[in-house]
Every structure is written in structure tokens, then in C-alpha cells.
Design a protein around this nucleic acid. Structure first.
Ligand SMILES: [Zn+2]
Ligand SMILES: [Zn+2]
Ligand SMILES: [Zn+2]
Ligand SMILES: [Zn+2]
Lengths: 160, 160
DNA sequence: GCTCTTGTTGTTATGTTGTACCATCCGCAT
DNA sequence: ATGCGGATGGTACAACATAACAACAAGAGC
């Protein structure tokens, strides 16, 4: 398990390591796949990774525009679409926001614990939950393609 | 199990029975709770129940406006908010759309199988999946409040 | 009857999220 | 040099959702 994956979103940790790890992994993956992690896309990935709270596209845009005057909505959405296609970020559907993936390279839809109080969102990888999802679909003769699992509530720290 | 709950979204069935059942259940529940299922709200519920495909708020608005000239976005969103609060419909987060609940009266967040080809969306009630969600949250010391589960893919009919 | 309160609906305007479409630029292969 | 495909620039607009205040209707208490 990487330092990044070991860190929990709601706990204090060396977040610089999260970012560095995420960017390094992204560069490796894109190089291997022969796709371009351009400076613009890397910048957007960096912005999304600034926290463990899902970030809205227009928040990303505001941040990006500070150093990139030409930034417009399509600029951001194209970068986000690329990063999602490469499995480097996830979209949190219930928030219309985006979050860095902690398991980039391993194709998955993502399972999330979203704290309603502090906003911190932790991506979990739970094989039993995955199995239960597959079983539920199978029971209905349904072929799953994308599985959205977003649990909102109170994180360990806020729920005390 | 009611006739409504027994019907699968992707199969042909007597859909009038779905609607009648849903409206009757809604009237009972609201009467019991002492909340007002007004003609407007009932009309919106009826519109949402016209199919087993999640319906966007503006689609509902277009339909509603045919018989209710004063209808505006807030008209529809207020009715949808009421119906959600009473557990009569669900919002499908990954589609920004709304769907009638097949188990109104039993508080739950809903679990959905969304066909990407035909659009039919089936609400399932899977205790094992529910257990797995609870367990995953517990493992992270997370207190779940709302659980969004939306599996997109191909339904039994379209996946053949 | 009156009026206070609460809940519902009417109405206008605006905020937020996401795309369509075409132009331009750049690296690379022919 | 020419053409091609991928990436970005830039304008406009579509789709989804809410804020804020006015109007109205029904029941409770006087
Ligand atoms: Zn971190
Ligand atoms: Zn992930
Ligand atoms: Zn039906
Ligand atoms: Zn339901």
C-alpha cells in the first residue's frame, strides 16, 4: 500500500506526499499508455489533489485561471474528462465534484465515504462490497458497467 | 410484494397498475402523516410515474405545463423536494433525474440498476448489499446517513 | 365575523453545472 | 510543403437548480 493509499482523508497526514505520489503515478501511467499528460492536464490534476474534498469544476477553473489566463469552462472540462478517462480522478455524482483517485491504474468505479460536516471524502476499496454489487446485478441479470457508490454521513472525526 | 414491486422496469407489464398503486400508496402515506399531497404534487408524482425511466425536472416541467400554465422551475422543484422528503420518489444522482419509489413508506436511500441502452431503471432492495454498505462504513468508523448506489450497464433485455 | 399563523403556490430573476461548435496551433509523417 | 490528428483557445448556449418576495388559502383562536 502506498503512502497515499494509507492516508485517510479525515486524518492529518503529510499531504504533500499524497500529491507527489499522485502526480508521479499519473506521469508513469500516461507514459506507459502513450497518452499525453500535458502541463495543463497535470496542473488540473494538481489542483484537484490539493485537498481530500471533492472540487467543483468551476472551483478548479477559478484556481487554474490564477496562473492560466486563457482558462475557460471547456478548458477545465476537457482536462477533467481526460483525467477521468485515464482513471486518475473520479466524479462524485452526488456533489457534482471531482476527486483524485487513490488507486490509479486499477480500473474501478470508486466507492466513497463523504463527510457531510467537514467535506472530507475518502475513497475506499472494499472487495466484499464489490462482490455484493456484482451479486445484486447478477441476480437481476444485469451487466454492470459503472458502479456509483457514495455514502454520505459523518466521518470518524466529526461523528465523535 | 405488491404488483408494482413485482414488476421489473425492463419487462412489459401492466404499467397502469404501477401508477395506480403508487398514487394510492402516496395518498395513504400522506394522510397518515398529516402532510398535504396537493393536486399539484400528485400531478407531478403521476408524471414521474409515467415510465420506469428517470425523468429530468425540466421534462416534468414540460409535461406539467401542458395542463398547468403557471408551472415554472420552482413549481416543479418544490413538488419534487416534497415527494423526496416523503420518500415517494428518488433522485438518480448520476442522471440528475427523478424516479418513482417502489417501496414508499420504508425509509431507504435506494439502489438502482440503470440501463444505458434503453434507459429503464429498476430499483432493487438487496439486504446483502445493504449489509455490505453498512459494514464498509463501519470498518472506516463512518456513520452513514444516505447511501447512493447506482449501477449503470445493460439490463436483462438489452444485454442479450 | 376577524385576524393571526402556517403552508402552498405564483413570479421574476439569477446562480450553477456542463456542452456545442468552430478556429487555431503544434508535432509529426508523407 | 502538405496533410493529419491531438490539444487548446474562445464564443455562445444548454441544462439543472435556487433565492427572494408576493399572493393566496385554510384552520385556530378570539
Ligand atoms: Zn492527503
Ligand atoms: Zn479510485
Ligand atoms: Zn410499470
Ligand atoms: Zn425506493
Amino acid at each position: 500500500m502506498t503512502a497515499r493509499a494509507a492516508a485517510h482523508a479525515h486524518t492529518s497526514h503529510n499531504h504533500r506526499a499524497c500529491i507527489d505520489d499522485a502526480l508521479a503515478t499519473a506521469r508513469e501511467l500516461c507514459a506507459t499508455r502513450g497518452v499525453q499528460l500535458t502541463p495543463l492536464r497535470e496542473k488540473v490534476l494538481h489542483i484537484v489533489w490539493r485537498s481530500h474534498k471533492p472540487m467543483g469544476a468551476y472551483e478548479v477553473l477559478d484556481e487554474l485561471a490564477r496562473s492560466h489566463k486563457a482558462a475557460r469552462p471547456p478548458t477545465v472540462y476537457r482536462a477533467l474528462d481526460f483525467l477521468m478517462a485515464e482513471g486518475l480522478i473520479h466524479k462524485i455524482e452526488s456533489l457534482n465534484a471531482y476527486l483524485g483517485c487513490i488507486e490509479a491504474g486499477a480500473p474501478h468505479s470508486g466507492q466513497f465515504l463523504i463527510c457531510q460536516k467537514c467535506g472530507a471524502t475518502e475513497e475506499i476499496v472494499d472487495p466484499k462490497l464489490e462482490t455484493a454489487l456484482e451479486a445484486a446485478a447478477r441476480r437481476a441479470h444485469f451487466q454492470p458497467v459503472r458502479k456509483v457508490v457514495e455514502i454520505s454521513g459523518l466521518c470518524a472525526r466529526c461523528g465523535k
